[in-house]
Design a protein around this nucleic acid. Structure first.
Length: 462
RNA sequence: GUCCCCUUCGUCUAGCCUGGUCCAGGACACUGGGUUUUCAUCCCAGCGACACGGGUUCAAAUCCCGUAGGGGACGCCA
């Protein structure tokens, strides 16, 4: 049977890095096995579920390149299915009505906790049939009364729990809606899910769900419970995936980075999507929780920034440049600039911010730099360079470089004394790509205009 | 409180299953050098860990037991 996995977030919030990693491991496992990746939205929490979150989750997955093969499937669209199954369980004696009130249960729970016992439903209505008339009731599943339940988890290995830890949990609320631990089972079974891969905060739930499978006459799937990413805070990965996109991280880098949280492939750090799909397997998934380290994410991002095709990079940089109110469009010049700037920042945001001078001359000259470099020694040479540049046949970094070297030699000034004033004139500061590339990156008239304007900064003799 | 899971450099991890090749390897970060027309990139070096305690064994990061610490679960949330 072919592999079918599902990522099943609730739509009570946006997708954050922890969820993204769970989705990724599902996706990678499915693709590695040539299987199917399903997206299901767990929206049975009527209080908190919001459609906008569903959209946000779909968008995040899309950005990360994990389009589901099936879905999104909403659980609320399947309500009828659940009621049928509950009726059947009731008829077969695998479930029963419970007339306890929420207040009554809460009281018992608090009492148990206060006395240091495990809070557990008393099973008061398990074997009763003297149902009160017209009273609201919930439906509870009958858990086995003795024995143990063992699962063979793809990540955790064999885990056994004594059934005395389990109680008859509610599968249908008094308002008639089914609860999570019941609904997941029905859905996973109906969708022919073969492998349930989720965070290990669900490990305990698994022992509740297995008896539900059995009561329904179904074989439980294979489970894989991933260790959680610990200490996620807004600053550490629990912000929406889209926030990382907006902060200038590449989706490849995000995917690459989160894949390495709990999984590894020897010493390799940088993976293409194809490699991830090819190498991924639960043999290499660890059991211990990991921390989200933004410094390393940044490093992975710089690696991807270096890897991308220049034209691709330019395209991705464009929106960030536009956000800075710059007059830019996707053209050869932008591609050239992207290529020059790609290793000069950790994120697209930083690169965009450092690239503003390419698109506007509204910048301030760095005073210290002006003082240090705009000196009379450089002035005659720079003036001659400006003249030579005016008549240059071929406007290219190479030929521009030739002029700088020749003029420098003639005036007996070092290259730094020509390069720095040039940088200041074109960018306002002394930090930029190679000067020749820099000059060549401007249309000739613009370069000359800035050089002439900059030349006015040359100070008097000291 | 009860149950489940986890524990190798600050962080992500390799090694653990199949004890010796590990006085523990790689990566990020950090520190110091070098290359360079600036900055960045890049290169080199350094710093830095087997949670603790018992066993088993000729030999343990690797196997067993315990302790401590961390995480998770215990809902008419998912």
């Amino acid at each position: 049977m072919s592999v079918r996995v599902r990522f099943a977030p609730s739509n009570t919030g946006t997708l954050h890095m922890g969820g993204a990693r769970t989705a990724l491991f599902n996706y990678l496992y499915a693709k590695n096995k040539g299987g199917t990746f399903i997206l299901r939205i767990e929206d049975t929490d009527r209080e908190r579920s919001k459609e906008e979150y569903t959209e946000s989750i779909v968008e995040a997955l899309d950005w990360l390149g994990m389009e589901p093969d099936e879905g999104p499937i909403l659980q609320t669209s399947r309500l009828g299915m659940y009621n049928e199954r509950i009726e059947k369980l009731l008829e077969e004696g695998h479930a029963y009505r419970c007339y306890c009130t929420p207040e009554e249960l809460e009281e018992q729970r608090e009492k148990a906790l206060a006395e240091g016992r495990k809070p557990k439903y008393s099973r008061k209505w398990r074997d009763r049939t003297d149902y009160p008339e017209d009273q609201p009731y919930t439906v509870r599943i009958k858990m086995p009364l003795e024995g143990t339940i063992t699962i063979d988890d793809m990540v955790q290995g064999e885990v056994t729990v004594d059934v005395d830890q389990l109680d008859d949990f509610i599968i249908m609320r008094s308002d008639g809606t089914p609860t999570y631990n019941f609904v997941v089972v029905v859905d996973d079974a109906d969708m022919d899910v073969t492998h349930v891969i989720r965070g290990d905060d669900h490990l305990n739930n698994t022992f509740r769900q297995v008896p539900v499978y059995r009561a329904l006459g179904l074989e439980p799937p294979t489970f894989g419970h991933l260790p959680l990413i610990s200490g996620l805070s807004k600053r550490k990965g629990s912000a929406a995936v889209q926030d990382y996109r907006d902060r200038g991280f590449l989706s490849e880098a995000v995917v690459n980075y989160i894949s390495r949280l709990g999984w590894s492939h020897g010493d390799q750090e940088i993976f293409t999507r194809e490699e991830l799909v090819e190498y991924f397997g639960f043999d290499s998934v660890g059991k211990s929780p990991s921390n989200f380290d933004e410094d390393k994410l940044k490093w992975v991002n710089t690696e991807w920034l270096k890897k991308l095709e220049a034209s691709d990079l330019a395209q991705r940089l464009l929106p960030f440049l536009k956000k800075l109110d710059l007059d830019v469009e996707l053209d050869d010049r932008l591609v050239q600039i992207a290529d020059l700037m790609r290793d000069r920042g950790d994120t697209l945001v930083e690169i965009a911010e450092k690239s503003t001078y390419f698109f506007t001359d509204q910048f301030d000259y760095d005073e210290k730099a002006v003082k240090k470099w705009m000196k009379p020694v450089s002035e005659p040479a720079i003036k001659e360079i400006i003249e030579s540049l005016e008549g240059l046949d071929e406007w290219s970094a190479d030929s521009i470089g030739t002029i700088y070297r020749e003029v420098g030699k003639k005036h007996e000034v070092g290259l730094a004394k020509l390069a720095q004033p040039t940088r200041i004139s074109l960018t306002g500061s002394t930090s930029s790509p190679s000067v020749f590339d820099l000059v060549a990156s401007f249309p000739r008239e613009e370069a000359l205009r800035r050089l002439r304007k900059g030349a006015e900064l040359f100070g008097d003799d000291e």
